[in-house]
Design a binder for these strands. Structure first.
Length: 868
RNA sequence: GCCCGCGUGGUGGAAUGGUAGACACAGGAGACUUAAAAUCUCCAGGCCGAAAGGCCGUGCCGGUUCGAGUCCGGCCGCGGGUACCA
């Protein structure tokens, strides 16, 4: 071989690793364990650059930990249930199971060439009955412990297709296939009691020191703890008081109306003999169920005609409205409207001619609210207007606290801590998911299936013919025989639950299953005890809230049921959230002005082959419909896996989005070629007898003494700095910085006049440093240069502290914050002497132009700033 | 709407509050070559200047600081999440 050939090298070293069984995770007594996990993929059929990026990062960590003497668990599996499989079956007539397993085989085939250090013996898919059967066992345990319950909840209903729609399937309030106006429908569904853990999940966030602060903050806000008060408002008619919840009771004086949810019992009751109200409630039922849609929708209301008395000033009667913006799920489903201090209430009041009355002013700005509500932060000071608790100037927080205390003392209200977090509805009216293992019996009601009857398996066909997915609705519902079963309790004829579980359930415990994928129970305690927790979890920021919060809940619930040790209730010790891989979009318009997308290979210099100019939209998330997906398989075929790996790690910091460019991949390949050639050249010189091979590398490194030769000294110092920086880079996800340092060092190595022996040593260390990122090339270089065994098995190099320190430093000198000169001084020179030398500098003197410095700031080893 | 991020040369990006633009791409000049490819060397934020050097510059406006890309406040733009996409 006379030039770098990734194809030859990569196949060779992958078989070498396989033969050595290096990536099989084994419990070890004398090594520390390390569990590194990347969020497992949905088997869409093709891997994309985002996968390559995600798994390469995990692989760098896993290989680094192997080199630092850890027993490493690095598994892979498939998040295999979900809607795309059913959609594919609807579109092209296949079966979700065949589609999914076919995709898994394809994707595994695309991932294997990447040379990831994965223990493939632990692989599973969540649609394997062995996996979801254990999930059903978990469900039954949760049921027994009261962690699951049933209640009514609202779903999107497509009245034409007669099917439940996911939020994603509702477009502008219409069903995505039928185009029919979507309605809301109430169904009895299963819920996990995650809300019981609100406080715990919130408090434990503080302990997650190795999670990004932004993720913890997002979870904190999602859980949404607030202190407020429930206040009953007496009705002027005979009805029971309306209880409102407020987190800003200090604005009570400004209360001018009550708004209740359309779902509120009072709304429903009044609607019975008020057709106008009934129509209004029906109208609000057509809205999307998403929070975003509700918040953005026009705020509308209708006056119920009933009134309540203000609890502090009973002579004031407030009208009660039904408002489409009031959520039944949060608080009490009733709020008091205070237009002066809430923009939404103000808009509502202006629209319907309701009173606007200030409860406080800002100091020095004693004017009434007109078009913009006055909403102070809780720490901001305001001046209350005839506040009943007798406070005047105070912060909002003090106002809130005083109000709650006053109401409680008078027996007019109750202070309450509430959370925004709602229970997790897990029922899905779909086929391709884990069946909920319960049975409905006419005499016994809802009965859990017996554990020995698990798994409750999905039927593949219906009466001998494969299930037809072109018929809308849930195939489990209409299946001729699957529903029929015996009641586990009384033995009478009964019906299976036909709802399946949310796919978030599948991904809420897979990390625990990886510790013992063959166990006959959900986990095996001794394995969970050994491998948990996940030391480093890596995945997309889009999972910052739901997946990660659900997993934290699941780990707690599994601990309660005896499936995880207590230390695992926070299952992910460290979390890293990576950015997306993006690509330009190329767009033209057809004659009706509709967008038409083009593949990157069809566009040259911003034009199509026929010369039509193309609009280029930068940095969009890769998606099939926009035709901007770059298939990593093409890159691997053209340049090899190491090039793809090197590229996805090199240019962009891993937490940020990365733009895919073809040129970037070529550049990566070019560099790897240079490294290969350098090793090849040194090997040739070794063969010619120039290089001494007698001693091991670490011995030579340890024995190296400075001063033999200045070029050797320079190179060795640079090498140790490189070891230090690459090590730090790998440990802190600074892969791009580590790679820049490797470039820098290699450029220096290419130009050095150091001895062949020193170059040879440096090159071997460089192979070690590159091995987590480009493992195949590293093995090749290692072996060319006579390294013993496999580099993947070789201990990580350690930088010598003594080689890191420089004797002198270059200090920039600023005059009034602008750089004017620099001086080179011994590292430990004292401040006064540095100051003297700085002021003596000719450029500084010129800059001062005779002026006397007022102050000179010397930051040792950093900078000098002369202030005039 | 709400919550959380991000914004730096032609491009990707670097920079514990301390020399803004490391490293790389694209570009320019040169070497090698009959030529091209490949490879190698050098140049390169903008403006002014022959040069020395000067001025400007990290989305916009303001603040803190001897010193701000970095910290604080207010905007603008883009992205993620928003509970049934995974």
């Amino acid at each position: 071989m006379s030039r770098y050939s990734a194809a030859e090298i990569e196949a060779k070293w992958q078989s070498a690793w396989d033969e050595a069984g290096i990536f099989r995770a084994e419990r070890s007594r004398d090594k520390p364990k390390y569990y590194v996990l990347e969020m497992f993929p949905y088997p869409s059929g093709r891997i994309h650059m985002g996968h390559v990026r995600n798994y390469t990062m995990g692989d760098v960590i896993a290989r680094y930990r192997l080199a630092t003497g850890h027993s490493v668990l690095h598994p892979m599996g498939w998040d295999a249930f979900g809607m795309p499989a059913e959609n594919a079956a609807m579109a092209s007539g296949g079966h979700p199971k065949d589609w999914t397993y076919g995709n898994i085989a394809d994707m595994r085939g695309q991932m294997k060439p990447l040379g990831l250090s994965i223990d493939w013996s632990r692989e599973f898919a969540t649609c394997d009955p062995e996996y979801y059967g254990q999930q059903q066992a978990l469900f039954l345990d949760f049921l027994e412990k009261g962690l699951v319950y049933r209640k009514n909840a609202v779903v999107n209903w497509d009245p034409v297709d007669m099917t439940v729609l996911a939020n994603e399937q509702v477009i502008d309030g219409k069903g995505w296939r039928s185009g029919a106006e979507v309605e809301k429908r109430e169904l009895t569904q299963w819920f996990f009691k995650i809300s019981d853990f609100s406080e715990e999940l919130l408090e434990a966030l503080d302990g997650l020191e190795n999670w990004p602060a932004k993720v913890r903050l997002m979870q904190e806000n999602w859980i949404g703890k607030s202190r407020g008060i429930e206040i009953p408002f007496e009705r002027t008619d005979a009805g029971a008081p309306l209880v409102c919840y407020s987190t800003r009771p200090d604005t009570m004086r400004g209360a001018s109306f009550i708004a209740i949810s359309p779902e509120h019992p009072v709304s429903r009751e009044l609607a019975q003999d008020n057709p106008e109200l009934e129509a209004f409630i029906a109208e609000t039922r057509k809205m999307d169920t998403t929070e975003a849609a509700m918040e953005k929708a026009e705020k509308k209301g209708i006056d119920t005609g009933i009134t309540v008395r203000h609890p502090v000033w009973p002579e004031r009667e407030l009208p009660v409205w039904v408002g489409n913006f009031v959520l039944m799920d949060y608080g009490t489903g009733a709020v008091f409207g205070c237009p002066a201090h809430d923009q939404r209430d103000l808009d509502f009041a202006r629209k319907y001619g309701l009173e606007v009355r200030n409860a406080f002013y800002l100091p020095g700005q004693e004017k009434d609210v007109e078009t913009e509500a006055l909403v102070p932060a809780k720490t901001e000071t305001v001046i209350y207007i005839d506040h009943f608790a007798g406070i005047g100037e105070a912060t909002s927080q003090e106002g809130i606290d005083a109000t709650i205390d006053w109401f409680e003392a008078k027996g007019l209200g109750t202070g309450q801590v509430k959370y925004r977090l709602r229970d997790w509805g897990l029922s899905r009216q779909r086929y391709w998911g884990c069946p909920i293992p319960v049975v409905h019996c006419d005499t016994c009601g809802v009965v859990p299936e017996k554990k020995e009857n698990l798994p409750v398996e999905l039927p593949y066909d219906e009466g001998g013919t494969p299930i037809d997915f072109s018929i809308p609705g849930n195939p489990l519902d209409r299946h001729p025989t699957w529903r029929d079963c015996k009641c586990p309790s009384c033995g009478a004829d009964a019906r299976r639950e036909t709802d399946t579980m949310d796919t978030f359930v599948d991904s809420s415990w897979y990390f625990a299953r990886f510790t013992a994928p063959d166990a006959q129970t959900p986990t095996r305690m001794e394995d969970a005890e050994y491998w948990m927790n996940v030391d480093q979890y890596i995945g997309g920021i889009e999972h910052a809230i739901l997946h990660l919060l659900y997993s934290r809940f699941f780990a707690r619930a599994m601990h309660i049921c005896g499936h995880l040790p207590e230390k695992a209730i926070e299952p992910f010790d460290a979390l890293f959230t990576q950015g997306m891989v993006t690509h330009e979009i190329y767009r033209t318009k057809d004659d009706k002005g509709r967008p038409v997308y083009h593949l990157p290979e069809d566009v040259t210099d911003g034009k199509l082959a026929d010369g039509t100019p193309v609009q280029i939209i930068p940095s969009a998330k890769m998606s099939k419909s926009k035709k901007n997906v770059v298939d990593p398989v093409n890159i691997i075929d053209a340049f090899g896996a190491d090039t793809a790996r090197w590229f996805v790690l090199s240019d962009s910091p891993p937490e940020r989005d990365v733009e895919w460019t073809a040129a970037g991949a070529e550049a990566a390949n070019k560099f790897l070629g240079r490294v290969w050639r350098k090793a090849h050249e040194l090997a040739e010189r070794r063969d010619a007898g120039v290089v001494d091979l007698d001693r091991s590398l670490q011995e030579i490194m340890d024995a190296y003494e400075l001063g033999v030769n200045q070029y050797d000294d320079e190179l060795m110092r640079a090498l140790h700095k490189t070891i230090d920086e690459v090590t730090k880079g790998v440990e802190s996800f600074g892969f791009n910085a580590a790679i820049a340092r490797i470039y820098g060092f290699f450029n220096q190595l290419s130009k050095t006049q150091a001895s062949a022996s020193t170059q040879w040593r440096s090159m071997r260390v460089l192979a070690q440093l590159m091995s987590p990122m480009t493992p195949h090339l590293a093995e090749e270089v290692w072996s060319m240069l006579g390294g013993e065994g496999l580099v993947v098995d070789t201990p990580w190099p350690v930088a010598d502290e003594a080689m890191l320190a420089d004797d002198s430093v270059t200090l920039p000198i600023q005059v009034n914050g602008k750089r004017r000169a620099e001086i080179s001084v011994p590292k430990d020179m004292d401040k006064a002497e540095v100051e003297k030398r700085a002021l003596a500098h000719e450029a500084v003197a010129r800059s001062l132009d005779g002026a006397q410095p007022k102050k000179v700031i010397v930051v040792p080893g950093r900078i000098v700033n002369v202030v005039v």
